[in-house]
Design a protein around this nucleic acid. Structure first.
Lengths: 128, 128
DNA sequence: TGCCATATACGAAGACCTTACTAGTAAAGC
DNA sequence: GCTTTACTAGTAAGGTCTTCGTATATGGCA
């Protein structure tokens, strides 16, 4: 497996999010999704995706004229990196502190709280 | 109250962490703590703290020759911003997903898991 | 075969981030 | 008082991030 890609920037993360959600896609398709939310030039999105290919954040298939892109790492992998990085840098490595921050930022629903409790429970029983 | 300060950069967050831990401090004191961990020029730290003052991330008392700095916002406030921001951008607003990422990044101890469970419990009972 | 639509590639500007040197100034010590 | 020391401010270089205009290539179709 190749080297780990670097932490994505804000704009790069936005594109990765689109790729994770729709899977393999052309620049045009990604641009369409993004420009539905905010103004963005096609060439800007293209540029980002070229840079991301260089960085190893995405892989691309160039056999077609319109290159096909896909995220180089699954969503969960990147989420783990990002959560771990922030936990380290801003919460002195404490998952509990990070959880507190998240709950303070946006109140979770009763259901979400229950699911999280189940998650912790699973971890307690020697979950890997 | 003044405008919310922007999200701190990596280097800024490192300095804030020092300020939160030792409270009010001069550039020299902050520099000493940081250079104990990694090479860093005094003037670099100074420059950062000047920029942070402009951005509103820190406040400074200039009555002494050696200015006294302090974080403009408490640690918890900034942690809430950062957790909320990442939760929004990388976890589509799901606290549960963020928690999963954090747990996957670094296995929590049994005690930490228990404390987190208690935390969720408290939230369930209409905690503010 | 030549034109049009649509791709990619390239270049570049402007903001911000990181780092560090140096000039100038104020305090402190001799 | 004068020198040394310590601090701030200013300047600048080099890198990254974000944005976009434009040039160039390619495939399809009339």
């Amino acid at each position: 497996m190749a080297d780990d890609p670097p932490r994505p920037t804000d704009a790069e993360l936005e594109i990765l999010t689109v790729l994770w959600s729709i899977g393999r896609a052309t620049v045009r398709e990604v641009h369409e999704v993004i420009s539905r939310r905010r103004p963005a030039q096609y060439s800007t999105v293209l540029k980002f995706m070229q840079i991301m290919a260089e960085k190893g954040l995405v892989r691309r298939d160039e056999t077609q004229r319109a290159h096909i892109y896909q995220a180089a790492r699954p969503r969960e992998w990147t989420q783990r990196q990002l959560a771990g990085d922030l936990m380290e840098r801003a919460f002195s490595g404490s998952a509990k502190a990070l959880l507190m921050g998240a709950l303070a930022a946006r109140k979770a629903t009763r259901e979400e709280l229950a699911e999280m409790r189940k998650l912790l429970e699973a971890y307690r029983k020697g979950e890997k």
